[in-house]
Amino acid sequence: MKRTVGERLVRSGIRLPLILWSLAVLYPIFWMFLGAFKSNAEIYANPWGFPEQFNFSNFVTAWTEYNIDTSIFNSFLVTGLGAALCLVLAVPTAYALERIRFKGSQMLFTLYISAMMIPMVLGWIPLFFLLAQFNMLDSIIGLSVVYAMSQLPFTIFVLTSFMGTIPKSLEESASIDGMSPYGILWKIVTPLTMSGIITVTIMNAIQFWNEYFMALIFLQSSENYTLALAIDFISNEAQYTNAWGVLFASLVFAILPVIILYSIFQRRITKGMTEGAIKG
């Protein structure tokens, strides 16, 4: 089909907003990377341009003087522990809800799912005192547990829908061969659900790595700060210390793992998130 001049005009007219919006998304991120390589004087003199020379001193300062190293370690720890605990708790429950018939199965599923829609803000006040009682306030372990629980309903939800796609015949034949239900869960179902487990774990990990507000409430001492808290602290302080370059450098530390995960697992992440939203 031949396109008329008018159609061509419409088409390029539609491209323009797309290009502008990609600039609006990419430029601030790109600029954040540039800022991390600039000296303070350069940031003031030429805030939105290129640095004259790339120097890494901001990264070094962030790492050595602002304890970013500890915060990165804490963030990795809380992300890993939280994601692992969430899986350990979610996989057996998801399997039981999807495959075993028992009274109240539907009710339990509904209970978990409705927890996804409830604003947890209300729960944070009692949770604060509960953690204090368990000696888990201001602790990375405590925060990991809170994180794991916050994503538990979503994880159960994603895993049940993945497990629903596995043919039952495999489990049945393993059972006839004398395998215990524990063996079936561990050796048959878990490997077959691996794709779902990976998807949901990546999404949980990104969530935990980025999380800010629960960390703000449940952590207090600076040696326990996660990266998000450390950055918030540097940002609030920068008004007096003018450590803008250091702030950008720590933002780069925060965003780099997410960019890496996104570039490897782009399809999984987008698919997981859209499906989670559709069914949730």
Partner: peptide, 23 residues
């Protein structure tokens, strides 16, 4: 069934249900 459901539900009750209701 208990192995699959109970530990998770106990954790869920302590860290999600209890805080909401005591809120």
């Amino acid at each position: 069934l208990a192995f699959c459901l109970v530990p998770t539900f106990i954790m869920f009750s302590i860290f999600t249900l209890y805080p909401l209701f005591s809120g």
